[in-house]
């Protein structure tokens, strides 16, 4: 009974179906259809605001007005699945890949993927710093067996476009006078969460190759050997120092990680 009432109400809001007869028909100054329209507007408005909150760079790139149009189309195809609005909008990068009006802006989906990784990273719980003291207790000859754990916020994104530079140019306080060379081939962006700040940086192909294998749970020795074969210039010590400082590497174990 209650479930039927609410489900019909939900369908009227989300799908625009005719208001069910369970409602009083008239309210002082307006009919029930007006009330449903208010709820439909609220629903779309709240999801638009959630998207705008998660994708401020996309909004700047396409302009607020076009973003509203884009969000309206996205909302029609992607009903909300979570009561927490911060979960809404994970599929925007995929959506943009197939959204005809933005096909000229080929870098847009990758910028969206980067923004979503940042959005998720922002709300993750804190993780401990890498414990160097505990590492000292391990015999150096066993270092090659170590598995390193990465921060759950950490993500490596590949793109044919300089998405990290695009992202940085659209942060609050960034210099508005910038030039970004879109050509120039394959780039790698790293999202990390040192402390409670979300950080976006560029990653060298060698560091990315190494980090992706570490993330997959391969041991330190094997990962480093494979990376060095392909990238003789890879500097393990520099990579370790940088990635520990960025809180990308947060823990280690001699056993395979779960």
């Amino acid at each position: 009974m209650l479930d039927d009432d609410l489900t019909r109400f939900a369908r009227a809001i989300v799908c625009g179906e005719a208001p069910p007869t369970q409602f009083d028909a008239w309210y002082g100054e307006y009919p029930v259809a007006t009330a449903i329209e208010v709820y439909r507007n609220n629903y779309r408005g709240n999801l638009h605001d959630a998207l705008a909150g998660a994708y401020p760079v996309i909004q700047q790139l396409v302009g607020e007005e076009f973003f509203r149009y884009l969000a309206r189309n996205f909302v029609e195809q992607h009903p909300s699945r979570s009561a927490n609005l911060h979960h809404y909008g994970a599929e925007l990068a995929d959506f943009l890949s197939g959204f005809a009006p933005v096909q000229e802006l080929a870098y847009l989906p990758d910028v969206a993927a980067l923004e979503w990784a940042c959005h998720v990273a922002y709300f993750l719980a804190d993780e401990p710093m890498f414990d160097l003291g505990r590492l000292m207790q391990i015999a150096p000859e066993r270092y090659s067996e170590l598995r390193l754990r990465t921060h759950p916020a950490c993500q490596v994104l590949r793109s044919n476009y300089p998405v990290s530079a695009i992202w940085h140019a659209h942060q609050p306080g960034a210099d508005s006078d910038f030039r970004i060379e879109l050509e120039g081939g394959h780039r790698l962006a790293l999202v990390s969460r040192p402390g409670d700040a979300v950080q976006v940086s560029e990653l060298s192909p060698a560091d990315a190759d190494w980090l992706l294998r570490i993330q997959a749970g391969v041991s330190l020795g094997e990962t480093t050997a494979v990376t060095l074969e392909q990238f003789p210039e890879f500097d393990l010590q520099a990579a370790l120092l940088k990635l520990v400082a960025q809180q990308v590497l947060i823990d280690f174990s001699l056993e395979p990680l779960p």
Partner: peptide
């Protein structure tokens, strides 16, 4: 309700 999520504060009977 019924597989739908509406991110709003909605009344019920």
């Amino acid at each position: 309700a019924g597989g739908w999520v509406v991110n709003d504060l909605l009344p019920f009977p």
